[in-house]
Design a binder for these strands. Structure first.
Length: 285
DNA sequence: ATCCGGTTTA
DNA sequence: TAAACCGGAT
């Protein structure tokens, strides 16, 4: 019986005892130590840089973030720089990452921290989660990675690890059943490194075992991008970014959608703080 | 053509 | 709970 089978067996026999937790951590760390991914945001403890990386990593693969992270930080090296920057520059730096409202929210975070939190990223997840675009995952991940604080949290790679080892032949698994296991197996001596290990190992398991996270009750499939409103929206934003002051007519031509569709999206983008109508045309707020 | 993923709003 | 939100890799 190999170590993984032993883990499954022991877990079924006695539940998540300290011995089972130890064996589990050993399996994860033994895989991780020689395989550790070198990622730029793992080389800093700057809470701002870590916040930037976590926002970028929402819904976005590591390889796509890697380069943008460096150029973004070069242009906006700290919270105050980002807070003071024109939104137009921030959105331009964001192009290629997708989900542009993350960039708007990130800038708003910077403004809020500078305006009312003394310019320091809070070390308390309950403070962080009040900021725009920061939910339960990001608030805890930032605190764990920036301050090495032992807090339980879950995202897709972590989910894969726990489903693979503790729910091997089940599906429809809810996060509420995973969180206690995450809590009880947390390496309290070095939570930052432990979560790196979980994430790298989980990413590996997906390639090896066909994404165990699909067996989560939280797994969803995105509708096609082609022909979607998301596509129209991104084209509008890009057109305004590239042609400040663009007229409504030119915008409709550039986007290739009906006047009704463009108008509806323009309203939404304005309501979300992306775009303003000024003079004859449209520009970034 | 299909796959991947946190947060917010309804 | 469901639906909306992006772009690049495969």
């Amino acid at each position: 019986m190999n170590r993984e089978q032993e883990l499954t067996h022991l877990f079924r026999q006695e539940g998540l005892t300290p011995a089972v937790a130890d064996l589990f951590r050993r399996i994860v760390y033994d895989w991780y130590v020689p395989q550790r991914r070198e990622l730029p945001w793992r080389e800093t403890f700057d809470p701002y840089a870590i916040l930037v990386s976590e926002i970028m990593l929402q819904q976005t693969q590591v390889e796509r973030v890697r380069e943008k992270y460096a150029t973004f930080l070069a242009e906006f090296p700290d919270l105050r720089a980002l807070a003071a920057a024109p939104l137009e520059r921030v959105l331009a730096a964001w192009q290629g990452l997708g989900y542009n409202r993350r960039a708007v929210n990130l800038k708003r975070c910077a403004e809020a921290v500078v305006a009312s939190l003394g310019g320091e990223v809070p070390a308390d997840p309950n403070e962080l989660v009040r900021l725009p675009g920061i939910g339960t995952y990001t608030s805890r991940a930032v605190v764990v990675f920036a301050f090495n604080t032992p807090l339980p949290f879950i995202e897709t790679n972590i989910r894969s690890v726990y489903i693979h080892h503790f729910f091997a032949d089940q599906s429809g698994i809810h996060d509420r059943d995973l969180m206690p296991l995450i809590e009880q197996t947390l390496d309290r001596d070095n939570p930052r490194e432990w979560y790196y290990a979980l994430m790298d190992y989980g990413s590996h398991l997906k390639r090896l075992h066909g994404n165990p996270s699909r067996r989560s009750s939280h797994h969803t499939r995105q509708t096609p991008f082609k022909g979607s409103n998301r596509e129209v929206r991104s084209r509008i934003l890009r057109a305004v970014l590239e042609n400040p002051g663009i007229s409504r007519d030119a915008l409709e031509k550039a986007v290739g959608a009906s006047s009704e569709i463009v108008g509806k999206n323009l309203e939404q983008l304005a309501a979300e703080g992306f775009i303003v109508s000024r003079g004859p045309g449209y520009r970034i707020l």
